[in-house]
Design a protein around this nucleic acid. Sequence first.
DNA 1: CGTCGATGCGCACACTGTACGCACAGCGGA
DNA 2: TCCGCTGTGCGTACAGTGTGCGCATCGACG
Lengths: 236, 236
Amino acid sequence: MEIPSVWTRTRRQRDQPALTRQQIVAEAVALLDADGVEALTMRKLGARLDAGATSLYRHVANRDELVELVVDEVYGEIDVPEISDPADWRTAATRCAHSVRSMILRHPWTATLLGQVGLAYLGPNVMRLSDRMLALFRTAGFPADKANHALSTVMAYVIGVGISEAAWLSTLARSGRTEQDLVADLRPAVEQASTEYPHMRQQLTAYADTDPAHARDESFTYGLDRVLDGLAAALP
Amino acid sequence: MEIPSVWTRTRRQRDQPALTRQQIVAEAVALLDADGVEALTMRKLGARLDAGATSLYRHVANRDELVELVVDEVYGEIDVPEISDPADWRTAATRCAHSVRSMILRHPWTATLLGQVGLAYLGPNVMRLSDRMLALFRTAGFPADKANHALSTVMAYVIGVGISEAAWLSTLARSGRTEQDLVADLRPAVEQASTEYPHMRQQLTAYADTDPAHARDESFTYGLDRVLDGLAAALP
DNA sequence: CGTCGATGCGCACACTGTACGCACAGCGGA
DNA sequence: TCCGCTGTGCGTACAGTGTGCGCATCGACG
């Protein structure tokens, strides 16, 4: 009576193992977003999933492996436009760079975790990102080796900016104040520190009243434009 | 029965507190260089100084504060050439960028720690570095605001490259193998991961037999040249 | 029904950062 | 000479960490 078919045979191996790698990683991202990088402990993550700490080890070998998975997960939020017209490469690269930066700003804890992984570059999302950006620079006209260098250059710039910004945003989040308030509170210390450094002090007084978030945006786009200028000039 | 003698009485002079902040930071750098970032614990650092773990807290408020001091310390190893002729700006910037990179490669643990500090930018060595680079771009001809952006751009690029390289070198050091061996051992996994990504796979097969260290050098200088090209083109 | 493999979890261990309080060395004043 | 006082080192202790080990459970299959 029971006909063995694909649908009946193993309806679901185990209805829902109640704890799956996907779910663990997703919850880890949520925990990191909510409470910062020092809150990512196996016990707290287990508690969020109504599970014991050691239960997670059935699906994840290490805490380090969990970190690798988490990093690859947020890399998945980045999108790279696919292009066919070589003339579109610059706007596509710009869009991709902004996508990376906004991902880092959404998850400032990446500042701490990005430096720890090293091998996460085998993750599927990182591979996909690299592959698409490689394709982008190839259709732009870069030869194979230069396309690789171009990809590394723009990613290094974006990650460098992102790490610095994310580190600042993390301490900002920990302080619990608004950015203007924290800047104002830090001002005496900054002035004290810059007494012996005339260029820094001049920089400080010149831009005392500008909105810091807007200044960060402007600095990022300025640098990105210069980097892309340099790459464009190197196109054959 | 215990007679107080000259040998037991004044065990240590007050002149040299036997534990000073300078010494602690220097030993922390040595410990990090020797055993990596996970080995920097207060107990191990104390043991290296023939002191108890909690003794360090007389000279350092937190472990985080120690990290800030350590980061500023290695920033002190970077030198920025001072220039008077505006034509020299590019070679000076290049030299400074290479100095930063070689510092990071000497101390690969900076990959992990740089993302944690955020506020270490008040440290004297970081201030000195920023001030000198600001001066460099000013004498190059950049107006005040653009000089700041230029400084941020090249530092972001250098730090971005450095973080990636340092993360790789850290795992390399942990593995205890030579770079060629580790690359060879990882090759099956890399090929497995890149099956679905044609551009990555082509990149992989094309540069299978190149020396990785040399490839990193070349990639760094290529990107740095492009960044400086872009900045040079923006000079008024 | 029995067997089995996969899964969750309690316990335990080594190890972490660091608060607290005591011991003591040298100094300035009585 | 003695007495605080302050600055320094350290022993103890506590809460919290990652994780190895072994047991309990449970669905699936013979």
